[in-house]
Amino acid sequence: MAERPPAVTLGVPRLVLGGRLLFENLRLHLEAGRWTCLLGPSGVGKTTLLRLLAGLVPGGLVVTDDGRPMDGRLALMAQQDLLLPWLTVRENVLLGFRLRGQRRRRGAALVARAEDLLARVGLAGRGDDLPAALSGGMRQRVALARTLMEDRPVVLMDEPFSALDAVTRHRLQDLAAALLRDRTVLLVTHSPREALRLAHRVLVLGGRPARLREVPVPAGEPPRDPASRELLEREAVLLRELVASVTRGEEVPCASSAPS
């Protein structure tokens, strides 16, 4: 990575979606070069916050601590792998360059880097396969390689591991934590355990309009041991709080959130 990752602050003065006041005077701060995990029940607006940061929905103000704009400095990883089925694995890893028309310049060097990244996510030699030939976990690893290929200082991830089985998820979490160390990362997740394993900071989004609350994380650098006593205790506490906040009616699941 060529540049130092910036700290990023998103300010949302007021956002109404579907007739419902989602955020008011909300401020989300991502520390430079660290992982921030955003937790919260479904429908509370986690993904919307991520999309505001990415500039995919209007209404947010994004500021970086180095004063340069965010545009062109972030990469996105979603729950679906978003691989294009007609491109090979290698071509998918290189998708950004293809879409920016940068394939001809430094073509060989790019391919070499794509191969290197595929090897690092454990997919050496699979570059010529079509995505359909891969398992769900392998596809998500290709998506991770594509994200790394972009080599951007800020990485936004929207539940990238939630569709995977427990073992694959665990291994992919370790891999992502290792490969995206020192970047400014926002990971949206509904899993308290995942947040407590991977984050330097955990923020819980809740209420209406939604507010952010920081909760303490276990000691030590991520990725943390999921079996550590501290992590398990914090997970239990966090889970209890989330359940309580939902039953208090602070958040309602998507389906019943129609405005009155």
Partner: peptide
Amino acid sequence: DPAWLELARVMNARPLAVLRELRVPAAL
């Protein structure tokens, strides 16, 4: 798929490339 288009947008894709590399193959 709108998710593909958003990915392309975050990647700073050129509009013509989006048509050629995404929309057309997806419509085949």
